[in-house]
Write a protein that binds this DNA or RNA. Structure first.
Lengths: 230, 230
DNA sequence: TCCCTGTCAAGAGCACTGCTCTCGGTTTTG
DNA sequence: CAAAACCGAGAGCAGTGCTCTTGACAGGGA
């Protein structure tokens, strides 16, 4: 894809990637808020001001890293869901496991996207599409399970009321045909899933459920059942 | 309690509180990582170096703020649970609502304790006891509901296996007598609760479940039923 | 009462940060 | 081939956390 480019354009694309790579390397050891443009430029053997030709500000660099992190997480989820499974619950559990594994392997990048928002940093529109990839994977599993008749929910699960039906329309567009009672539960399971990952990574489970392997397995199984997968 | 103190000690305690108050004020407008000792000292009309007599480092100030935030959240939960309710499910819902309200009223302080950990900052032992207050409130409600015979769980809820029973011992010490099947579900509900709050505060719900009032209400009700409160 | 010890605010200074601007040199384009 | 766009280097600004020294003050013991 670099075919028709001029030498300058290719060099620019390469250097942009090198900068992000160095930033990711620095991110892995330090935190997100101690990410220093000067340190990156030092590692790359260039002057700090030259770096501003590629990223107009520190926030723009962060945006690039955030988009990459969302994409990496989304790819991890998609490739876990792409395999063949006998039962959709296996696909659900595999995606949940893949999400946790990625988060544990890249804790600082996870914190970048699911941790506290950076002060003064407003997530640009470019991040919402990559961010949606992961929940879409989960919804696809539910949607397909519903189409194949795998979803069973007890009769006493209440129907969403108030503004919920309207809000769930957005999600129903991704998983067409799935009853709103189930969609609501999928959103609940989604928040549980990432709450659990965040708690493990951010040290909230230390002293009780840490290490969290068994807890994670049990919780994802119960939440799978919660949304009707059994 | 300031009775037997000398004038110097009283002045020191007062200034320590004033510094934390100014820091909280600054925290409310800016984020956590842009909390500046020099800005605080400027607001207090003193020189930045004088501030180090009260807090040896920026991290020590943060620790003070973190402890205060945990305490404030714990107090909010405890006072919500202290009222009289006809049914324990009302206590559960009231505490959940109080937690969300506090988080929405103090988003940056919430991010300080439940967001991404500060880089290079290791939570000192002084934070674990205030941090435990909130989950203890939730467990007390479940424990009391169990003692009064309100807890009912379907028979097909699996018994915790692996390392889970051993890990749940710590929690069982707070809620004695409650079956481990329920305790595990309480922990799951706990992670769901804070996952939901974090998602709302950190902007992950924008585009779907935002505003989250109805979603929060429905989710807390379903999770209450999930742990056996009905 | 005096004095000495511990505490205090102030100031200068170090190393670091993000960011801006200007200056030449190179590359691409018309 | 010239003009325009782009590039890295360097200096510099305002801000940061933190350290060290200096001089003033208060409190308890002689």
């Amino acid at each position: 894809m670099n075919a028709g480019r001029t030498a300058r354009e290719r060099a620019r694309a390469e250097l942009t990637e090198e900068i992000k790579a160095a930033a990711r390397r620095q991110l892995a050891t330090e935190g997100a808020e101690s990410l220093s443009l000067r340190a990156i430029s030092r590692e790359l053997g260039m002057v700090s001001s030259a770096l501003y030709r590629y990223f107009p500000s520190r926030d723009d660099l962060l945006t690039g890293l955030i988009v990459d992190a969302y994409d990496a997480l989304g790819t991890a989820a998609e490739s876990a869901a792409a395999k063949d499974y006998e039962h959709p619950i296996q696909a659900w559990l595999a995606v949940c496991a893949a999400l946790r594994e990625w988060a544990r392997a890249n804790p600082h990048e996870y914190a970048l996207i699911y941790g506290s928002p950076i002060s003064g940093y407003q997530a640009p529109q470019a991040t919402v599409e990559p961010a949606a990839r992961t929940p879409i994977v989960l919804l696809r599993i539910v949607s397909q399970a519903h189409a194949e008749g795998w979803l069973k929910l007890p009769g006493d699960v209440p129907e969403p009321t108030g503004k919920l039906p309207e809000q769930l329309d957005v999600i129903a567009a991704i998983a067409p045909g799935v009853p709103y009672r189930i969609l609501l539960r999928v959103v609940i399971a989604w928040t549980q899933l990432f709450g659990m990952i965040s708690f493990e990574l951010f040290g909230q489970l230390v002293g009780t459920m840490d290490p969290a392997d068994d807890f994670y397995d049990a919780a994802t199984r119960q939440m799978a059942k919660f949304i009707g997968l059994s």
